[in-house]
Each structure stands twice: as C-alpha cells, then as structure tokens.
Simulated scan of single mutants.
Amino acid sequence: MKVAIMGYGTIGSGVAKVLDTNSDIIKERLGEPLELKYILDLRDFPGDPHEECFVKDYKEIAKDKEVKVVVETMGGVEPAFTFVKAMLEAGKSVTTSNKALVADKGAELMKIAKNNNVNFVFEAAVGGGIPIIRTLTACLTGDVIEEMSAICNGTTNYMLTNMEQFGSDYDEILAEAQSLGYAEKDPTADVEGYDSCRKIAILTSLVSGKNVDFNEIPTEGISKITATDFKYAKSMGYSIKLVARSTKVGDTYTCRVAPFLVKPSQMIYHVAGVMNAVSVRGNMLGESMYYGAGAGALPTASAVVGDMVFLARNVDKHVRIGWSAEKLELADANEQKFRYFVRTSALQSNIENEFENVEYANLDLDNETGFITQEMTEHEFNERKAALGGIISAIRFY
C-alpha cells in the first residue's frame, strides 16, 4: 500500500524511520507492506534515504490514486487544513499529530472524511505515544466517562519537576529547558497552558460526541509558579502539577487547565519529568491511567504509524468515531468547587474575616501568610479573594 508524508520535520522524519525500521513487523501484522511514495516539504534533503520521494506540491499526492494513506505532520492550522481537506476529498485517509489542527478543525474534517468514505484519525495529537484516543473511542465505548485529568505537556511537567527537586526559580528552569530543547524559543503555548487546553478540548469532544471550543476553557499556565510555592506544597505533603481536567456535569462537561496541588495518593502525583499521563474515570471501569512519552520523534511517530496500520485495514470503509460539529455548551466553570491554597500579605484577622474557617500553612516568611480555604465555588472564592486583597498566589487543590 502506497503512503505519503506531509511535513518532514521531527515527527515526519520519525514516521519514515519507523516505517523503515519496523517494515517487516508492519508487513506481517497488516498483510502487506506500507511503501512510502511521497514526502511533501518545501526544503531539500540531499542524501536522505528517501530523497527520490520528495515533492513540493501537495496536489501531486492528491491526484495519485495509488496513495491510500497520508500522514500530516506539518503543524499549525494552515496550510495543513487545506492540504488535509484535499486528501480526504481525493479519497485518501489521513492521520495527523497536529493538535492545533484537530482542536480547531477536527469535527469539520471528520465530516469531510465521512462524506468521502475515508477516515481522519489523530492518535498522536494528544499524549504523543500514549494510546489514549483509541482507548476512548474503542476500548471504553461501553463506559460513561465521568472525569479525565491529563498531564499532557512535557515541557511544563519537566519544568515543575525540576523546580520541585532543585528549588529552581521559573526563569532559571525555563532557560534550562530551552537549552535542552524541551522548550521552544517562544514557550508561550506550553507555559501558559494553551497546548494542554487544546488537548483536553479534543478528549472532551471525543467522549461527549460534540464539538468543544477550546477558547471557552479557562486556562492558566505555570509562569506565576515560584520556588516558594513548592516550599509550601512540600510542607503540606503535596506537589504542583499543570493538569487539564474535564468533569461530567449533568449532560455536559466542565473543563479547566491550571496548576493544581496534588497528593501522593492520586495517580498523577507520580508523573515526573517530560512524561505524560491521562487518568480516566469511567462509570463502570473506575479509574485507569495511561502513561508514557508525550513527545519526541519516535514515540509520537509510533502512534502515527499505528494509525497508518488502522487506516490501511479500513480502506474504503468509514469508521465512525462520533465527534459531531454540534457545539457542546460547557458547564459554568465558576460553579466548580475547590479548596484553595492562598499566599497573601493581608493580616490574619482580615483573612479570618473574609474566609472564616481556614488552616494555616506558614513557612515563617516575612510579610506573607499561607492558608487553606474550605471548599467553595470558583465564583465565591474570587469574590472573597478580591475583598481580602494582597494576594501573592492562589492554587487549587486537585
């Protein structure tokens, strides 16, 4: 079966390597080899093992009836959307690792795939090499998914782990992560939580069957987390993780991305470094967790090639996933209830006046007090926080 890759960066070249390295086992499992016929990239790669495959016009791939499966690893929404749409309309199934494309255009592309009796899949778009998408769409289809919690950005998890272990400040560990290649030159999408936001939107769309607008998910990153926050967390027996959460509320879900205080008895507490994990709670299964490498050329490429084999097994047959274009109206995130850890310069008498019953978590630091609130809604907390004033930081308990 002839296949093509659009985008020959880190992931695209990793896909080619997996196809080369594991060609025998893929042939055995599929019943025929996957033969790479085209690679779309504007750059030249002299000396590459697949040098003869390179083309610069996506229409060459679209018009070749031999090609049945196409991989998109370009990144971004455009021109990826235009190219993928053209492939689906030409009767080719597509797999992508591009979470921006899936979060923004996933429902639309799946509708186009259905109309053309082909498939659009995206295992590698969330969690890299972790098989979470097919777990939700195949293995857990008998469950109602009540909650999902994901540590799904290796950059921020690496940074938080090192801040905790070595007492590093945010700016210091960001510079280190950039020097090691874990963080981009412009790290905004990672450190402000936007990458995690898109991923939890995709997962929630899949389990709800409706389209979640990632722009409507309250999102906080880690740029305001400090070494002092970790000192407090340690004194209380907690860690701090950037968690993307989705919780069933009636007939819908409420979503949030934010730093949370997590305790050792909770599964995601133990996810460290650049690793990713997704915890899923079903109404029948209970809690299960899917853990592994969330980024990197070969782990992500492994998931892409798994999708390619799935697509090759389902040529000329649309496999329903169940993500419609109908918008999911998310539950009001301000009605979510949490306990909060707060650092403030306010006087203790004012703290007790505004928050009543609190527990103190002091480190004997000058000019600030740390305290834990009772459980309350986000709306109520924000009102009391504004009335208290002097807030240095506030972190929710998971």
Rank of each mutant, 00 (worst) to 15 (best):
T21N: 12
D24N: 15
I25A: 06
E32K: 14
Y38I: 14
E51K: 06
E51H: 05
E52V: 13
I61M: 07
I61Q: 12
A62Y: 03
E66F: 05
V67G: 05
V77D: 11
A80Y: 06
A80L: 00
F81Y: 14
L88N: 05
L88W: 01
E89T: 03
A90K: 06
K92R: 05
T95K: 05
N98L: 04
L101F: 06
L101Q: 07
A103W: 04
D104T: 13
D104M: 12
K111E: 15
N115H: 10
F120S: 15
A124E: 01
I133C: 04
R134H: 12
L136S: 08
A138P: 10
C139W: 10
L140A: 13
S149C: 15
G154L: 04
N157I: 07
L160Y: 00
F166G: 06
I173L: 08
G181Q: 02
Y182N: 04
D186G: 02
V191I: 14
K199G: 03
T204L: 01
N211I: 00
F214A: 12
T219L: 07
I222W: 07
Y232L: 10
A233T: 00
Y238D: 01
V243A: 12
Y253F: 02
R256L: 02
V262L: 01
P264G: 09
I268N: 11
Y269W: 06
V271L: 10
V280P: 07
R281H: 11
R281Q: 11
G282I: 08
E287I: 12
L311N: 03
H318A: 13
L330M: 09
K337F: 06
R339Q: 12
E354T: 07
N357P: 02
Y360H: 08
A361M: 11
D366I: 12
E375C: 07
T377S: 15
A387D: 06
G389Y: 03
I392V: 15
